[in-house]
């Protein structure tokens, strides 16, 4: 029998069970998009761009009393080991849809009636948790674009590998993963805005995984806030002539 990727004490990449991969977040990285951001969970990397609020095309999609949010999750063909077919798939359509629902609660859509806010998420490198990574990048890009928001939404996943409940499954663990549960969290309102799960667990384990994922979200929330603030503080010191 081959050696398991999760041993009694530590994980194969040296992380603790309740530790995420190193996180990198940066807002304001693209020129043409109104707002943009990059987010990394270890080697999983997504870039998001925001356009709008702008006029709605086609016009019949317009809502008289609020802005509509449109999300487009895409995977670059070179983001996976086996080249992934470019263009929308059923998977990407579904992820675009759940991403929108995850983010929508924080957007103050009533401030810009009859407009659309368009978010494009491009996954450049995929090593598990791409939808969480994409949501985090999208949220940072929205804040960077000056879209009115009540809070940041944060996303993180937890799961079960070889009977152990762990945070942010990745790399070799992924092939042995029994359960994966991506979650998004609206911290100010203490609400779950994304919740999906694949794999067999007892009800008790499901609750435990959920709580661990939320613990991860709270930590990433701090990192994301910091990355937004640092965008402007860095510019300041640079500007001191």
């Amino acid at each position: 029998m081959k050696e398991s990727k999760v041993k009694d004490e530590k994980r194969v990449d040296g992380r603790d069970f309740d530790e995420t991969r190193p996180i990198e977040a940066k807002a304001g990285i693209l020129h043409r998009a109104q707002g943009s951001a990059m987010f990394k969970f270890g080697s999983t990397m997504a870039i998001a761009g925001v356009f709008g609020p702008r006029k709605v095309f086609p016009k019949h999609k317009e809502k008289a009393e609020r802005a509509i949010l449109r999300t487009d999750y895409r995977m670059a063909p070179f983001s996976t080991k086996e080249r992934s077919r470019p263009g929308p798939s059923r998977r990407s359509t579904e992820i675009s849809f759940v991403t929108r629902n995850a983010i929508l609660p924080v957007i103050v859509t009533e401030d810009f009636p009859k407009t659309s806010i368009d978010v494009v998420v491009e996954v450049l490198q995929a090593d598990a948790s791409t939808r969480c990574c994409g949501i985090n990048a999208a949220v940072l890009a929205l804040a960077d674009a000056g879209v009115p928001m009540r809070d940041l939404v944060v996303s993180c996943s937890a799961g079960k590998v070889n009977g152990k409940i762990i945070l942010d499954i990745a790399g070799e663990e992924d092939t042995e993963g029994e359960v994966d549960m991506p979650v998004a969290w609206y911290p100010k309102r203490k609400e779950i805005t994304l919740l999906q799960m694949d794999g067999i667990v007892t009800p008790g384990e499901a609750k435990e995984i959920l709580h661990l994922a939320l613990k991860g979200c709270e930590r990433i929330y701090k990192d994301m806030q910091e990355s937004l603030r640092s965008k402007y503080t860095i510019e300041e010191s640079k500007g001191d002539v």
């Binding site: 804040a143 928001m149 009540r150 100010k188």
Partner: peptide, 13 residues
């Protein structure tokens, strides 16, 4: 800004 339960929060960077 926006208000929830008497507390004022920012909507923007």
């Amino acid at each position: 800004t926006y208000v929830v339960e008497g507390k004022v929060y920012s909507k923007y960077i």
